[in-house]
């Protein structure tokens, strides 16, 4: 899919996301591929907060909000309910932030993947709990300053490496899983397309920079999403038919280029 071939129609309209929000861009792009025959199931996160506050509905598709741990469980319910009504052609898209995916939502996601339900799970990864004020999550990278991994005499930001969610998902023998970055939209959209065509569960985790959470000017979102890949801070990987492939970066840029643009890493530079 070429970018210029994407449909003009917007399915995300009128959100209150910050300027430069990588997360809302990830969802907007995904819906361009998935189209109007989609149901979103989502959970407390920035996304819910900026799209579905009464009387707002910033999606032109139905949206089922559920409790924080339950995205994938509610997905299973929607899949079953649509099946009963003979509407299996509708794509059920679970969306959660990294916290809602790799931490509190992990059990439900594991259950739904293992049940083999037909759905796509999109994790927009901004590497912390943004909605509640930038606390660390299991997806926060090593060294990052967050409000619960501050920098001081005794602690220098996050002291544990980022959870490798792709391998966790792959361990379920999921039909399709991938990581992506909003800085590489063509790659991302191809993966969304693949997920759509997959029979059974598909998982995509897309790096979605967050200006206030990471501490950078909002015009750098796409730039950082690219730099993350170019410096090797984020990998573009795909898991298909039991095989994991990782996009090789031949001449990685120095990590410093990526880190030095973000306040969350200022203490490391």
């Amino acid at each position: 899919m070429k970018i210029r071939d994407l449909p003009e129609d917007e399915l995300v309209v009128g959100s209150f996301a910050c300027a430069g929000c990588g997360g809302i861009l990830a969802v907007r792009l995904a819906l361009k591929i998935l189209g109007p025959e989609t149901v979103i199931v989502t959970t407390p996160s920035c996304l819910l907060g900026v799209t579905t506050f009464y009387p707002q509905l910033a999606f032109k598709v139905p949206c089922v909000n559920v409790t924080f741990p339950s995205t994938a469980a509610a997905v299973s319910g929607v899949v079953a309910g649509l099946k009963r009504r003979g509407k299996e052609h509708i794509t059920v898209l679970g969306i959660a932030g990294d916290g809602g995916t790799v931490d509190i939502g992990l059990q439900a996601l594991s259950g739904a993947i293992e049940r083999g339900d037909n759905f796509i799970f999109l994790c927009y990864d901004n590497e912390a709990y943004m909605n509640t004020g930038v606390q660390r999550s299991g997806s926060t990278p090593l060294g990052a300053h967050t409000t619960t991994t501050p920098v001081g005499e005794m602690l220098k930001g996050e002291d544990r490496p980022k959870k490798d969610m792709l391998r966790i998902v792959a361990a379920h023998d999921i039909p399709y899983a991938a990581t992506a970055s909003i800085g590489y939209p063509q790659d991302y959209l191809r993966k969304i397309q693949k997920a759509k065509e997959t029979k059974g569960p598909a998982y995509i985790q897309v790096l979605s920079p967050c200006p206030p959470g990471w501490g950078y000017p909002s015009d750098l979102t796409v730039h950082l999403a690219r730099l993350a890949v170019q410096t090797g801070a984020w990998t573009l990987a795909e898991y298909e038919q039991g095989k994991l492939t990782v996009k090789k970066i031949d001449h990685p840029k120095p990590l410093r280029e990526y880190l030095s643009l973000q306040a969350r890493f200022a203490h490391l530079i």
């Binding site: 741990p69 339950s70 509610a74 299973s76 319910g77 649509l82 009963r84 439900a108």
Partner: peptide, 26 residues
């Protein structure tokens, strides 16, 4: 009926919620 073998009670109710809003008696 569809029987969803969930991994917890929390999920049981979440799945029922999802199915109910999709039009099923649960």
């Amino acid at each position: 009926a569809e029987y969803i073998r969930v991994e917890s009670e929390h999920a049981a109710l979440a799945a029922c919620f999802g199915a109910a809003v999709s039009g099923s008696r649960v």
